[in-house]
Simulated scan of single mutants.
Amino acid sequence: MIIGLLIILLLVLFLPFTVKKVEHNLEYFLFIMGILAALVSGVFNMELLMHALQDPIKITLAVLIAGLLFKWFQTQLGNAIDAVSHKMPFPLFVALVVIVLGFISSIITAIIAALVLVLIVSNLRLARRDELLLIIIACYSIGMGAALTPIGEPLSTITVSKLGEDFFYLVELVGAYIIPSVIILGIFAAFVVKRRKGTGEKVEQEEESYQEIIIRSVKIYLFVFGLTMLGAGFEPLINAYLLDLDPKILYWINMISAVLDNATLAAAEISPAMSTATIEAILLGLIISGGMLIPGNIPNIIAAGKLNITSKEWAKIGVPFGLVFMTIVFIILLFTGL
């Protein structure tokens, strides 16, 4: 059994990073891998199946409803953004964009928050470096804020489900780190992002079709279903190899979240048998390092795809920024008793 689970784990960790077809169909891939992991570990039963069928419902509905609202009001939102950005000091506008999107992503989901971010940046027509700075800092903020509720992003959905906790569990667990971080990110963006006009044309964002919105919602459902199965299937591995690891080590190990979706890693690592300090370290390591590179988090993928940001462009800013960010949070964790 352990050998079979290790093979599945290696496939889950490396195929999305090395095989383009798997990367572009990650939801279907993890759906299949999750079922296989549950079968191999012998935990597949009716109770788990019902659990996996129910877990994705809330986040799927949130993505669907928010997606429809964004489609219906995209033009009005774009006009409002353009008006507001010219009626207040630009640094204040930038700070509010980063902070508000960070916090509201926990309700409208990280996916919709990223689409709103793209709409905002497209209307601003900034110089390329300022555009990149705003996108990357805001995606860090969105990735952190979305982790505060189980409807914000798959990572938080899976974590709350695996631990059997309530809606506000993550706010209580990591809110003291995430809430100040989102505010600080907004203040930092206000100082580094300048309104130097770019030379290119305004990037017009095509309106999504109803079909695209529905397909995205179905993919989220399959994604979370697969991760629920994956998490249950990997319990024997977690109990054998991760429970006794020092939380400090787990925090830095999770830098691999920079190249792998952090929800997948959360499903593979987190267990109810872990201490609160260990879960806290795992989550913060995953959430922060997920912003370093494009594949690490959903908002990164959406923003980079819509605005044609290359992996090299993202890495030049995202990696050093993430390393500094992780180091600061690690020092704080040490002083608070990690």
Rank of each mutant, 00 (worst) to 15 (best):
M1W: 03
I2T: 10
I3D: 06
L13D: 03
F14C: 07
T18A: 13
K20N: 07
N25P: 05
N25F: 15
E27Q: 00
F29R: 00
F31S: 03
I32Y: 02
L36F: 12
L36S: 13
L39T: 02
E47K: 15
Q54L: 14
Q54G: 02
D55A: 15
L61Y: 08
V63G: 08
L64I: 08
I65V: 10
I65P: 03
A66R: 00
G67R: 01
T75N: 12
T75M: 14
G78A: 11
G78V: 15
A80F: 15
A80I: 07
A83C: 08
F90Q: 10
V94R: 01
V97P: 12
I99P: 04
I107L: 04
I111F: 12
I111A: 04
N123G: 10
L124G: 04
R125P: 03
L126C: 08
R128M: 03
R129D: 07
D130M: 01
L134A: 09
I135L: 14
A138D: 10
C139R: 00
I142D: 10
G145E: 02
G145A: 04
A147W: 10
L148P: 07
P154L: 05
V160Q: 01
Y169S: 01
V171R: 01
V171T: 06
V174C: 04
A176T: 14
I178F: 08
G186V: 05
I187G: 09
F191Y: 11
V192Q: 12
R195N: 08
R196T: 11
G200A: 13
E201F: 13
V203D: 11
V203G: 02
E204H: 11
E208K: 14
R216D: 14
I220W: 00
M229F: 09
L230D: 04
G231N: 09
A232D: 05
G233N: 04
G233W: 07
F234A: 09
L245A: 03
V259Y: 04
N262K: 05
L265E: 07
L265Q: 10
A266P: 12
E269A: 13
S271T: 08
I279T: 07
I279N: 12
A281T: 02
L283T: 12
L284H: 10
I287K: 00
S289V: 04
G290K: 12
G291H: 00
M292Q: 11
I294N: 09
N297R: 01
P299F: 06
N300T: 02
I302N: 07
I302V: 11
G305R: 14
L307T: 02
L307Y: 07
I309L: 06
W314S: 08
K316D: 02
I317N: 12
P320C: 09
V324K: 01
M326I: 06
I328G: 13
L333S: 05
G337C: 08
L338I: 13
